[in-house]
């Protein structure tokens, strides 16, 4: 696996694949048809993303759904990423059945977290965490909610920056 692909994407990992996923893989067409009704993978992704970035405020919770959708789109277009993500989701499904006799989506949040903590040492899980974080925390809506207004020296603010705007005033 080429681990130096670590930032060569905006949330898209490019990884070698060594095994298939435990969850049936959906085709791109199927993913496209699923706009109205989430596939099992999309439903699981939405839950897993919300556990990886468990912010409580509504605006931040909403964005986890956007990140899940973004990942689903990336997965549809990237076979290696799809296989890697499906290995994580497949492992969570399998361990859920083994530990609780139910599917992962039917568990309460604390049970889901326990299973995710057990899975966190795999490279695939770390890749998923990386992809979720880099997608979620690049969102201007998230920045705003965290109190960060975003770049102040971009096209909207040419020659802007924080000069004369408190860069040197701590206030405490």
């Amino acid at each position: 696996m080429d681990r130096r692909s670590f930032l060569k994407k905006t949330g898209v990992a490019s990884l070698a694949v060594v095994a298939g996923g435990a969850i049936p893989l959906n085709s791109i067409a199927e993913a496209a048809r699923s706009a109205a009704r989430p596939t099992r993978r999309e439903a699981m992704l939405a839950v897993v993303v919300s556990r990886i970035v468990p912010h409580q405020r509504d605006v931040l919770k909403r964005e986890t759904g956007e990140t899940a959708k973004s990942l689903a789109r990336q997965i549809a277009a990237d076979e290696a990423l799809r296989a890697s993500t499906d290995r994580v989701l497949g492992e969570l499904s399998k361990s859920s059945k083994a530990a609780y006799g139910r599917g992962f989506l039917d568990l309460i949040p604390d049970q889901q977290l326990i299973l995710m903590e057990r899975a966190q040492n795999s490279v695939d899980f770390q890749v998923l965490v990386y992809n979720v974080l880099t997608d979620y925390y690049k969102r201007p809506t998230v920045w705003k909610a965290l109190g960060y207004d975003g770049p102040m020296n971009d096209r909207a603010h040419p020659m802007g920056g924080y000069l004369n705007k408190g860069y040197d005033k701590l206030g405490w």
Binding site: R3, S5, F6, L7, A13, R51, I52, V53, P54, L113, M116, Q120, N121, V123, Q126, V127, V129, Y130, V132, L133, T134, Y136, Y137, K138, V142, W143, L146, Y148
Partner: peptide, 24 residues
């Protein structure tokens, strides 16, 4: 924010193979 979330405690995508990134 995009970088701090993964660089403050990097996982194996950035750091050594056994590194575990922050989540949850």
């Amino acid at each position: 924010p995009t970088r701090l979330c993964t660089f403050a405690q990097p996982g194996s995508e950035i750091s050594t193979p056994w590194a575990r990134g922050l989540w949850g």
